[in-house]
């Protein structure tokens, strides 16, 4: 501190340093600032691209559904009075209400037909059936597993379990679908003796395997974000672990728990490959859990490859996609809202 700073006044080294004139310095400074501004704006543009993609996914998918309303041909295709001869007048002026009648007023999905039926209800019911089964199983198993990992498992086993859950999260869904189709469905039928080998319940069970790791991870994050001193003081007061969970953690994190379940729901109902392979692919309006079913995502997956671009069927499949997007955006919006509301900092 008290020693003077050593100065280099030999002068030998200084001669090797090139003399920087004022003008040269200005040029260097300017080029550095130019580089800075251009690089930062490039980064800004790529940030903007994310927002554009999020909007663009909705816009471009929705754009392909508009012919259903805007093109007279497709409106006529959709109208159920299309083939009858006495309705010539009707055909020319098929209104949007006939389109809506076909989508919401009927009860069958028969896209390849002279008078195609595009009722959304069989698919909606199928989606609801499969997703409910998957979500209930995934929530129960995921919730309990997260508790076991956080509180009860011995340390070494805890680590192994976490690794296995991460492996399960990285499992391709087509592999799960394949094993569900070849192995699990047969086991299920031989145990419960159901009429159909492939049904909504088997499909939901296999589907829950994709959602379990997600829900477990989200629950673990909730636990990790919980103030540790509160947990320690509860333990010091002599509370058992189950009391800490039910009296302390759950009441303070209900919103986040619900958000985690919502995100699991979003994962389940958009899943395609498992449903395509295990659900039995029957688009029928049937509330039974042990009959075949089909979700909206699986319908897109199985029919889009064979469809003519620009067809009525094509637009209809894009309408299903639009519904999926809207549902995803809503789910995400509400789960983020819940998480923000239930976070105290």
């Amino acid at each position: 501190m008290n020693e003077p700073i050593e100065t280099d006044d030999s002068g030998v080294e200084n001669h090797s340093v090139p003399v920087i004139t004022h003008e040269k310095q200005k040029v260097v400074y300017f080029s550095r600032r130019l580089k800075n501004v251009s690089a930062l704006s490039l980064l800004f543009i790529s940030g903007a691209i994310t927002v554009l993609i999020t909007l663009g996914i909705f816009i471009f998918v929705f754009k392909e559904t508009t012919p259903l309303i805007l093109h007279a041909e497709q409106r006529n295709d959709m109208s159920l009075y299309h083939n009858t001869e006495e309705n010539d007048e009707f055909e020319r002026t098929a209104s949007i209400f006939l389109v809506l009648d076909n989508i919401f007023g009927q009860s069958r999905w028969q896209p390849v037909d002279d008078a195609p039926l595009f009722s959304i209800w069989p698919l909606a019911v199928g989606t609801l059936k499969i997703t409910t089964v998957a979500l209930v199983e995934a929530t129960v198993v995921g919730f309990f597993s997260a508790i076991a990992i956080a509180f009860y498992l011995p340390r070494q086993l805890r680590y192994t379990t976490k690794v296995v859950f991460e492996l399960l999260a990285g499992m391709p869904t087509v592999v799960l679908g394949f094993l569900g189709l070849m192995v699990f469905a047969t086991y299920f039928q031989s145990i419960f003796g159901t009429t159909y080998r492939l049904n909504a319940f088997v499909c939901g069970s296999v589907l829950s395997l994709t959602a379990i790791p997600i829900i477990t991870t989200l629950f673990e994050e909730i636990y990790a974000g919980f103030p540790k001193d509160q947990i320690y003081s509860a333990k010091c007061s002599g509370l058992y672990d189950y009391q800490i969970i039910t009296y302390l953690i759950l009441p303070a994190t209900w919103g986040k728990v619900f958000a985690a379940v919502l995100l699991g729901f979003g994962r389940c109902f958009g899943e395609t490959m498992v449903v395509l392979m295990v659900s039995g692919n029957a688009a029928v309006l049937d509330l039974s859990l042990v009959s075949g079913a089909r979700t909206m995502a699986a319908t897109i997956g199985s029919e889009m490859a064979e469809v003519v671009v620009g067809d009525t069927h094509y637009s209809m499949l894009f309408l299903l996609g639009t519904l999926l997007i809207v549902a995803t955006y809503l789910i995400n919006f509400f789960s983020q809202l819940l998480i923000r509301k239930w976070t105290y900092d």
Partner: peptide, 14 residues
């Protein structure tokens, strides 16, 4: 976050 949650089949449509 929304992009991470969009179903993969929708990316196909996109």
């Amino acid at each position: 976050r929304t992009l991470a949650a969009v179903p993969s089949i929708v990316y196909g449509l996109f």
